[in-house]
Design a protein around this nucleic acid. Sequence first.
DNA 1: TCTGTATGTCACCGACAGGTGACTTAGTCA
DNA 2: TGACTAAGTCACCTGTCGGTGACATACAGA
Lengths: 204, 204
Amino acid sequence: MTRDRDNTKRKILEAVGALLARTGFSKVGINTVAREAGVDKALIYRYFGGMPGLLRAFAVHGRFWPTIAELLGGKRESLTSLAEASVTILQGHLAALRSRPVTQEIMRWELQERNELTDELARHREQQGIELMELMNAPAPGQAGGDFAAVAAIVHAGLSYLVLRSKTADSYLGVDLGSEDGWRRIDAAIDEVVRGYVESLARE
Amino acid sequence: MTRDRDNTKRKILEAVGALLARTGFSKVGINTVAREAGVDKALIYRYFGGMPGLLRAFAVHGRFWPTIAELLGGKRESLTSLAEASVTILQGHLAALRSRPVTQEIMRWELQERNELTDELARHREQQGIELMELMNAPAPGQAGGDFAAVAAIVHAGLSYLVLRSKTADSYLGVDLGSEDGWRRIDAAIDEVVRGYVESLARE
DNA sequence: TCTGTATGTCACCGACAGGTGACTTAGTCA
DNA sequence: TGACTAAGTCACCTGTCGGTGACATACAGA
């Protein structure tokens, strides 16, 4: 065999991602990762110091969260109104999350367990979320007669939940989570509910 | 020691609930349940046939899902409008879920794993969800110019996610998930967003 | 009072987990 | 070419898991 530390480290990190996407966090351990990577587990300890270190390296190395640019999907210039911006961002969130199985697994993991790593990941996302809120030019609570941030949080969370749930459920409240048709309904509903709400704010 | 099969079974089932609420599904196993119940694990095999049988018995015995009556919170008579009914039901869903840690754990479990038991639980809830939709007297998609069911699914899912996330996160998009204040914002936002949306439907 | 049964106890199995230390060997540099 | 370093291998430890069979004994019914 050839000896190549960097390549081995890469194989290990890739194994984490593959295992994560395929089997979820609960099955990711030293032994399974080593097996998946075709590498002796002692090397994981030598190169990453153990499971926590490996996960940290994995978290740092990967691009799990969509950039703001991706969320906007090249529509940055069209964000002329609060409704416009909100719909674009929320629809972008839905599409981005759906296309990232590993991110979904990380989010499932975050729901189960709290540790320094999940906290760090959460901090990063919370930070980005707040940037997004600013990008929507959201009015502060009360300022426009409504709590826009709280509404956005509900919808954002709802999209997250529907995507996470789609792995293990066929439908949710009658909406098919297994077909593109169902997701088109969700996508359209984002538009409906956000515009409806923002209009009601404007009317006050 | 006294010999009392029924009491032992009860202790075992209670141990499942306690363990579930305290440590989540991933830590629920034959050994941990037996230890928690202060009982020999052989009895679990004798009385329940093993882990799947125990979980099934647990699922049957417990009241994890709020009844429709609880969701309505004694406001059945006031459901005069679509908006009224929807807000009441969604706020009821939020309160009910927040008060049920075991239900939350089951839902976390459902996000991770799919098996006959989670499927059965999901079927039951999907059924109840559809009843709720009918109770809201929801117009069919397209009938009122909007897909009410999809919007309701997003909001319903969002509330679920926020509650599940509150165990491991302090805030979500700037909304504090650890204080009653944050939840009051969510509660109010349900009202805002639903009314805003329903009004926009009426205006078409 | 005796006896059968079912409740509860215990010891043990194989499999697999995380973790470690000693060994072999490939590649590099003097 | 020889020697050193580090990459890779292997054997083995401890603990826990799910699962099972043999055993002890409390209790009810004859």
